[in-house]
């Protein structure tokens, strides 16, 4: 069963009509092929139309769509059975909200790291809703250093509502863990590609987000705070999340326009959740071509350009 967001209602309706026709054809033996084709055409037109006029708050909702593929699904599918998950930060424990390990991408070994969300209530808790503790960021850094040692490219898949704001997270230095990653990722002497595949919330996202190419999938968001929290802090009410989503300029298009990311990855018609297979194949192609592109530079050049890129970010007035 597919899940539908409120604004996906027209898509739901058409999908249900198509299913009903097909079911009745099975029962009655009547040929419905033409009618189904008409409806499918209408479905494509409706979906295109809907997705053309998506507002920022709708993009935020899509980034959290329950049917959206999560990091593990992308990684396992792209590496076709060659992914081996590596666990633990070697200090405290294994953080289930942060995953990592090598996998082969058409024969080439790549270090994949990502935040992982769960698909049902039990798994959501197991994955802590994709909110990593300090040990998650430290595991990520350990694995990135491992990749660097053997000159393997690094791909991070970002999908988090934020770093976990818990008591133990504070005790174990959440701030230091993220800060350390920012500093060390700047200097990794291998190609680093960071891709927002869902939610890119604040320091928790940036903690695995320093790369030579930072890319956002079409229906994702990336900003310093979620629209809900922004609404509650700046408007002192939870009712301004739609306004806040617009004000924060958090969509892929806005982030690209402001020069804060390097590119946008198009999603299948109707979003990644509507066609996992195609979303995976698009992502794989992008990662492969981006690695090939980055490999044209020496690793020292990559580090220098990476640092210069982030140093140039910011807009101010020389009064």
């Amino acid at each position: 069963m597919r899940n539908y967001l409120d604004f996906e209602a027209p898509i739901k309706e058409l999908n249900e009509q198509i299913q009903k026709l097909k079911d009745s054809a099975v029962k009655t033996g009547v040929n419905v092929e033409n009618a189904v084709q008409e409806l499918e055409k209408a479905l494509i037109a409706k979906t295109e139309d809907l997705y053309k006029n998506m507002d920022p708050w709708q993009r935020v909702q899509l980034s959290r769509h329950p049917d959206r593929p999560y990091a593990l699904e992308y990684i396992e599918a792209m590496t076709e059975g060659t992914w081996i998950e590596l666990h633990g930060d070697r200090t405290v424990k294994d953080d289930k909200a942060m995953i990592g390990g090598f996998g082969l991408l058409n024969g080439e070994s790549v270090m994949f790291i990502g935040q992982q969300k769960g698909a049902n209530t039990k798994m959501r808790q197991y994955r802590n809703f994709g909110m990593a503790n300090p040990e998650g960021y430290r595991k990520a850094l350990r694995l990135m250093r491992l990749a660097e040692k053997f000159n393997k490219p690094i791909v991070t898949l970002i999908d988090t509502p934020g770093a976990f704001p818990g008591l133990e997270a504070e005790e174990r230095g959440q701030g230091e863990a993220i800060a350390r990653n920012l500093f060390e990722m700047m200097r990794l002497k291998v190609p680093v590609i960071c891709i927002i595949i869902g939610e890119g919330a604040s320091g928790g996202a940036l903690g695995i987000g320093i790369g030579d190419r930072v890319l956002m999938m079409e229906n994702t968001w990336y900003s310093v705070i979620s629209p809900e929290s922004c609404s509650s802090i700046l408007w002192r009410s939870w009712d301004y999340k739609v306004t806040a989503a617009s004000a924060l300029k958090l969509t892929a298009e806005d982030m690209k326009w402001n020069g804060l990311i390097d590119g946008i990855i198009r999603e299948p018609l109707g979003g990644a959740h509507a066609n996992h297979e195609q979303a995976i194949s698009i992502l794989k192609d992008v990662i492969q071509s981006t690695i090939a592109d980055l490999r044209k530079n020496s690793n020292d050049e990559l580090v220098k350009q990476r640092i210069e890129k982030f140093c140039a970010m910011g807009k101010y007035v020389e009064a």
Partner: peptide, 10 residues
């Protein structure tokens, strides 16, 4: 927003 976040990186 995004500019502020990237000052952490910068």
């Amino acid at each position: 927003a995004g500019f502020s976040l990237m000052q952490m990186a910068k």
